[in-house]
Amino acid sequence: MTTTLHIKNMVCPRCILVVENELKALGVDIKDVKLGYAQVVLPQGITLPIVDDKLKEFGFELIFEADSILAEEVKTAVLAYLKHIEQEGKEAKKLSDFISSKIGKNYNYISKIFSKQTGHTLEKYYILLRVEKVKELLDYAQLNVSEIALQLGYSSVHYLSNQFRRITGLSISDYKKRIRIDRGFLDDL
């Protein structure tokens, strides 16, 4: 029987690879693995607590409560929204419309549950994620600040700079001067 495992803290393609590898090591028959979940057939003797313990070794964990599952789905949808903005630019949908269509629920409901589960608003989470993406692009040093603003859908370099300073406490130029890169982990946001 196929079981859907809802998995917390999956934020990138490497997370998918780690989860796949660890499930295979347990002898689990994997049907599909995407950010936030895996569809599997558990072999005889492998229980959900065993799978959960194995995943916890790598910073993941199984989630069972509906509101927690929704919060993880929203995190995945916000990551997808960031990619949507990079691809669509000025033609990108609004965050609320994108999240509602991706999740299939009313945005106000989604936002309320997300805030309850994470302790901050969906918009704040999006801003934190967006600033982490700005840091990543600054670290690569392939784009200037104007290009980063355009790529991430900021209305202006000034707006990007103000938001960056408000979140990090540093100006973009001070951030770029730092010797040690101080970036957060996406699953900690």
Rank of each mutant, 00 (worst) to 15 (best):
G36E: 09
D29Q: 15
K83C: 00
S161A: 10
L189V: 11
G169C: 04
S161R: 15
P49K: 08
I69K: 08
Q151A: 10
K8W: 07
F98S: 01
M1K: 13
Y126M: 06
V74K: 07
I7W: 13
E132D: 04
E147M: 03
S156P: 04
L150H: 13
T121W: 02
V134G: 01
V28D: 12
K34V: 12
N162A: 13
I46R: 12
E72T: 08
S171F: 05
I172W: 03
R14N: 14
A66V: 11
Y81M: 05
N106A: 11
P43S: 11
R178Q: 15
Q151H: 05
L26K: 05
L23N: 06
Q39D: 15
E91F: 00
I113H: 01
D67K: 08
M10H: 05
E73K: 15
T168G: 06
T2R: 11
I46E: 12
L189K: 05
C12A: 12
S155Q: 10
K176W: 02
F64I: 11
A80V: 04
L122K: 06
C12E: 13
M1L: 12
N106G: 02
D32H: 10
I148M: 02
E88N: 12
D187I: 07
A25L: 13
E86W: 02
S146F: 03
I127A: 08
K133W: 06
D67Y: 01
L95D: 01
R178D: 09
K112Y: 06
L35Y: 09
R166S: 13
T168W: 10
I179N: 12
T2V: 12
A141P: 04
E91N: 13
I179C: 09
N9A: 11
L186R: 11
L160T: 06
N9T: 09
Y175K: 03
T4W: 05
K93T: 05
E136H: 08
S111D: 08
V18Y: 05
L138D: 07
L35N: 07
I7G: 12
D97V: 00
D67V: 00
Y109E: 15
E86R: 07
F114M: 09
G89T: 01
E147R: 03
V40I: 15
Q117L: 05
L95M: 02
L186A: 10
L128Y: 14
D139A: 02
A141Y: 04
N108G: 07
D174T: 14
F114K: 04
L23Q: 07
L35R: 06
Q151E: 10
E22S: 10
Q151K: 15
H158D: 11
H158R: 12
E72I: 06
H120S: 09
H6A: 12
R130A: 07
I63M: 03
E20R: 15
K112D: 11
G153K: 00
S171V: 01
E57R: 13
K116A: 10
D67W: 00
N106T: 04
L82K: 07
R130T: 12
L143G: 00
L150Q: 14
I16G: 08
R130S: 13
I85Q: 03
V51D: 02
P49L: 06
N21L: 11
I69L: 08
A38S: 14
I181Q: 15
G104C: 05
R14S: 14
I85F: 01
G36P: 08
L152E: 04
I179Q: 14
S173G: 04
E123Q: 13
K54N: 08
G89R: 00
I110A: 04
E123K: 14
